[in-house]
Amino acid sequence: MKQLIAFICISVSLVFAPSSLFAAEKAQAPQVRIESELEKKIRIVASMLRCPVCQGESVYDSHADVAVEMKRLIADKIKAGQSNEEILTYFKDRYGNFILMEPPTEGLHWVIWVFPIFMALLGALFLFQNLKASAQDIKDPHLDNFDQDGQSDDLSTEEVTDIKELRL
């Protein structure tokens, strides 16, 4: 009896599985929308601008009133035939470089770009020098005095023998 119930359950699930998958696909279908050329252009420009009232959010990602209006203005300017550069300049002239998501590499701004790389290099150098120094520190200075025959100028023969035994 149990086997029969299991068989029915599996059969039913196999019959309805494709249709339920199709239904799920159908339900998702309206969400997948092809981006128009204008929307693509708005996205590119709006992604390069910072929402003035948000924390680290682009105009494109923000739903703040000011960001929504900025997107409308961008759309109008694109429709009027303005280039991306012209639109970015429009906002930069009114809000300053702050409005750009990426600070420009001009004037003193290059420091922002170069400083992290410089610090990483300096840190790597510092680490390298420290590792090199500690590798030298762990060497026993007495052992450095041994010549190739295992003889030392500073130690007696007995001391050398003792040290050699310790090393073994």
Binding site: V53, V66, E69, R94
Partner: peptide, 13 residues
Amino acid sequence: RQGRMALEYGVYG
């Protein structure tokens, strides 16, 4: 009404 003047003047809020 739309806030275009505010954008023209670079108003934050």
